[in-house]
Design a protein around this nucleic acid. Structure first.
Lengths: 119, 119
DNA sequence: CAGCATCCTGCGTGATACTG
DNA sequence: CAGTATCACGCAGGATGCTG
């Protein structure tokens, strides 16, 4: 919809963003990939780092997130097709362009909500 | 209470952010409030506008989001205590400081994903 | 190592009805 | 007008086990 100027702006991009990053790990995955490609296991380990000793991330969930991110075009999957398996995930151009946004989020979060009253 | 605090420069702020804006409307509510206070009904109407013409937002959900946002300190509730009822919601300082972040999200979203996934 | 298959649970979200 | 109460449901997300 080519919107004209409305008094209240259309939240479309925001809604789309919400859907795109829905899921507990998507944002963090993208963030962790900002420094370069990571393997499946590395992403998994990386995600455990911030969690307060909670349960492991199940392959099912991680795989799901990874696929979703691939589908939305933020990351790219590279299967080396060898044995033992080796798969790398790296940010696409789109994904990299998104990093600054996450950075803005992180910066704001660091200043305004160290721990959200997380219990 | 808060468990151990890891300062591993991890995705903590991101996770906190995720929790804070969890819910379909929170971000959009904050965004819509950026221009000033709005009444309950105005927020409700506003949320319908950007939407994909889907169903109405149920009072239960909106009320919930509003309470959550109030609890996290992004918005402030002002009850005029009159009849008929009049309640205004407006951004707190914290909430206003968050607006630029949403703006970054919007700008990125506008450039990289205007497809909401749905028609 | 990098997944997939199956089962199960909680909660976010929607629909409908009622109230001060 | 600005909510609350109740019911119902889909789906994210965790647990476990298996595979190439």
């Amino acid at each position: 919809m080519t919107s004209a100027k409305s008094k209240l702006s259309c939240g479309c991009p925001v809604a789309a963003f919400q859907k795109m990053i829905s899921g507990k790990y998507k944002l963090r995955i993208v963030w962790d990939l900002k420094d370069g490609a990571l393997r499946y296991g590395e992403i998994r380990s990386g995600l455990l780092r911030g969690s307060d000793g909670s349960a492991e991330i199940t392959p099912r969930v991680l795989s799901r997130e990874l696929k979703a991110l691939t589908r939305t075009g933020l990351i790219d999957r590279k299967d080396f097709g060898i044995v033992p398996p080796k798969v790398e995930y790296r940010l696409t151009a789109k994904g990299q362009s998104f990093v600054p946004v996450i950075d803005a989020i992180r910066k704001w979060g660091t200043r305004h909500l160290r721990e959200t009253g997380e219990a």
